[in-house]
């Protein structure tokens, strides 16, 4: 494992911790898209079924369990927690996320490394992860004002993707048989979706002002 991959995993983990901290400390999930969180839970459940079939390392297995458990916990809090669910911006979070799921499933049935159950689910999870942030970005755009922790959450999620791209570039040059164009193309799409957010995040950081997205 190279340093870029490790930093990618760590920024991913930090983003989830920030989100859990926000929900736990403020007892509020305002500004957070339940649809994006449901998509991430689905992404992890579909991809990490290989927990039962392939063993890579203790690190990989532990991280997989952490990602599945934390994403389910977040969805549970936003849907069922007595106090937290009251702050959910339901009327702003109207993205038709089922269409994303259907489109990604169709694509995974057409394009995958091998037509087996686990490989189709794996490709599906990669495609779905690439677009899962869309409901969140739309919600932020609609609400305009982005609170500090929500801004940090999305920033670290974007950083995770950027580090994974560096990781693939590194692996491409250091490994003889490294070819995984499904991950790489999807990863590039996913990172590109953050470009706009990063731009405004940088502006607010430079001006030391509150993060605001244009309507």
């Amino acid at each position: 494992m190279n340093i870029f991959r490790f930093l990618g995993d760590m920024t991913h983990l930090i983003s989830i911790l920030i989100l859990l901290l926000k929900i736990y400390a403020t007892k509020s999930c305002s500004g957070i898209s339940l649809k994006t969180q449901e998509l991430y839970a689905l992404v992890f459940l579909a991809r990490y079924l290989d927990l039962f079939t392939d063993f890579i390392s203790v690190y990989n297995s532990v991280m997989k369990v952490v990602f599945i458990a934390s994403s389910l916990a977040i969805v549970w809090c936003m849907r069922r927690h007595r106090v937290v669910r009251r702050s959910y911006d339901k009327e702003l979070d109207t993205f038709r996320h089922y269409f994303l799921v259907a489109a990604c499933l169709a694509l995974a049935l057409l394009v995958q490394e091998k037509f087996t159950f686990l490989e189709v689910l794996w490709a599906f999870s990669i495609y779905l992860e690439a677009v899962a942030i869309l409901p969140q970005l739309v919600l932020l755009q609609r609400s305009g004002n982005v609170d500090n922790l929500t801004g940090q959450y999305v920033f670290f999620l974007g950083a995770y993707r950027a580090f994974y791209i560096l990781n693939w570039i590194y692996r491409y040059f250091t490994e003889t048989h490294f070819s995984r164009w499904i991950s790489c193309v999807s990863g590039l799409v996913q990172t590109a979706l953050y470009a706009d957010f990063f731009y405004y995040y940088f502006i607010s950081w430079k001006n030391n002002s509150k993060l605001q997205l244009p309507a």
Binding site: D9, N60, K64, E113, T176
Partner: peptide, 10 residues
């Protein structure tokens, strides 16, 4: 080296 179908990333 990484064989097709072995996914070692998260």
């Amino acid at each position: 080296s990484t064989a097709v179908g072995v996914h070692d990333e998260l």
